[in-house]
């Protein structure tokens, strides 16, 4: 009995001694600031900062190798807290950006060319004649973008159309990379007027394909401040460096332009339209 206790105690002492030495010899130099910063970061490991994860970004910020506002998801509030940890001043960086799907063509308004019953994924569907929509530019509605969004900010409205909730969107831009049609753009969160179409088809063709397509009539171009909306190959495109008055939206004969924000429901308009059919 006594021998056993002594033997075990001796073993424990030996192991503790070994561990104590190992802890010294193999110690990883650690910046305590990095831990604090990691606490502040969202912890989603979304990759929006183009680094392997939040811990890596925290380490780089602590070492001064990355900007304190390098996390687009954490945004300004995270940047302020990180500035305090680092003992720096945060003057306010670039404006918060959110994703926007530049298409309004749900099944209720956009024509289909054929019946697709293949793999339920936009990147697979696009391999079959570019997708089933008559408009070859529009949202395929199979939800690949919603699938990659770690923040649940993309809703697939009935009728197959992706809609980003700007409140939930953290600006990580994963959806931008996932969309095979390339119709998701990052836009400044403060801007409210958007032209929700990506079709470069000529007016007549675009109209035939979709009831809410930009037909290139240029009414909005004329109504907006000079240079704020420009034509790119039959498509009106907003230059987000301009502030555009909300009244311009009313000029659009196709109801392609939306104004988000005050009228909270504006961006979910296609969903409302779907209600009747469902």
């Amino acid at each position: 009995m006594l021998t056993a206790v002594i033997a075990l105690a001796a073993l424990a002492l030996l192991a503790a001694f070994g561990l104590a030495i190992a802890a010294r010899v193999f110690a990883v130099p650690h910046n305590p600031k990095a831990d604090e910063i990691e606490e502040v970061l969202p912890g989603a490991n979304c990759g929006a900062c183009a680094l392997p994860g939040c811990a890596e970004l925290a380490r780089r910020i602590a070492e001064g190798k990355a900007d304190i506002d390098a996390c687009p998801v954490g945004g300004e509030s995270a940047a302020h807290t990180i500035a305090a940890i680092m003992g720096m001043e945060f003057e306010g960086g670039a404006e918060r950006e959110v994703a926007l799907v530049l298409c309004k063509g749900s099944d209720q308004v956009a024509a289909k060319r054929f019946f697709y019953n293949g793999i339920y994924d936009c990147n697979s569907a696009v391999l079959v004649f570019g997708g089933d929509k008559a408009c070859t530019y529009g949202c395929l509605g199979l939800g690949t973008c919603a699938g990659v969004c770690l923040f649940g900010a993309i809703d697939m409205v009935p009728g197959g159309l992706a809609v980003v909730d700007p409140e939930k969107c953290t600006g990580c831009a994963q959806c931008v990379a996932a969309c095979p049609k390339g119709i998701i753009k990052m836009v400044p969160a403060s801007r409210k007027l958007h032209i929700l179409c990506s079709s470069h088809d000529k007016g007549g063709v675009a109209r035939k394909h979709c009831k809410v397509a930009c037909i290139g009539c240029m009414k909005c171009v004329k109504a907006a401040p000079e240079g704020a909306i420009t034509m790119d190959n039959f498509l009106a495109v907003v230059d987000y460096s301009f502030e555009i008055p909300a009244e311009v939206a009313a000029e659009c004969p196709m109801n392609t332009i939306i104004v988000t924000g005050d009228a909270a429901g504006a961006c979910e308009e296609p969903a409302a339209a779907a209600g009747g059919d469902a």
Partner: peptide, 13 residues
């Protein structure tokens, strides 16, 4: 299962 469709996708990726 839509095998060939899967493989075409994978080849593209």
């Amino acid at each position: 299962r839509p095998m060939v469709h899967h493989f075409r996708r994978a080849k593209a990726e």
